[in-house]
Amino acid sequence: MATTDPIFERNVPGATEKLRAAPVGIAGCGGLGSNAAMLLARAGVGRLILADHDVVELSNLNRQHFFRKDVGRTKVRALADHLRAVNPAMELALHPEELEPDAVAAVFAGADLLIEAFDLADRKRWLIEAWCRAFPDRPIVAASGLSGVGRTAAMRVRSSGKIHVVGDEESDMSEGLCAPRVALAAAMQANIAVELLLGMKEKR
C-alpha cells in the first residue's frame, strides 16, 4: 500500500485512498479542462487521461490554468507539468493529437468517468454521443453555459442517467469568457466527478 503524500493530510477522510486509483478522462484542456484537472489532482485523483491538440496562447491565460512560460507548448504537456508540481505521483496519459469521434473509445478506454471540456457546442454533442455509445454505463460530466460574468445562481447541474450537465445552458461564448464563471463550471464538474468516484452518487 502506497503511503499517502502529506499534501493530502487535510483532505476529506478516506477520499485520497479511493481517488488515487480512479482514472478520469478529460477531453479538452482549456478553461474547463485545465481547471478541473488541477482540482481533481488536489482532491487526490491519481490517474488522468488528458486530450487536447491545442498549444497554449497568451489569450488563454485569462481563464486557463497556464502561465506565460507555457506559451507555445502543447496544453497537455504544460498541464501535466502543473499537475505533477502538485502531486509528483500522478499517472498521466497525454493525447496531444486532435480527438475525433472514432477515437473516443480507444483514448478513454481506461477512464471510469469523462469530463467533457470542449469549447464548441457541436463538439460537445459528438463527444457525449461517442462516450455514451462506447461506455453507456460510465458517467460523463459535461458543461454548457459558462460565459460572461455574474449570474452565479444560474449555474446548476442537471442529470439524466449517466449524463450530468453543469452550467446555465444558455450563455454563449460570444459574451466573452471570464475566469470566475469558467472556473466555477470547472469546479462543479470536478465536484460531481469526485462525488461519483467516491460512490456518493450511483456511479455505474
Binding site: 479538452g28 469549447d119 457546442a121 453555459g145 442537471r158
Partner: peptide, 29 residues
C-alpha cells in the same frame, strides 16, 4: 436516461409515459 443520437431524432419513437431529458449545449469551455 439513455442518450438518443441526433441522427435518430426523426425515427426514434418516444413511448407513452417516458421521462425525457433535453439539454441545451452552448458554446464555451
Amino acid at each position: 436516461g439513455a442518450l438518443v443520437p441526433e441522427d435518430e431524432y426523426d425515427i426514434r419513437a418516444v413511448p407513452d409515459g417516458s421521462r425525457v431529458g433535453v439539454f441545451h449545449l452552448a458554446h464555451g469551455g
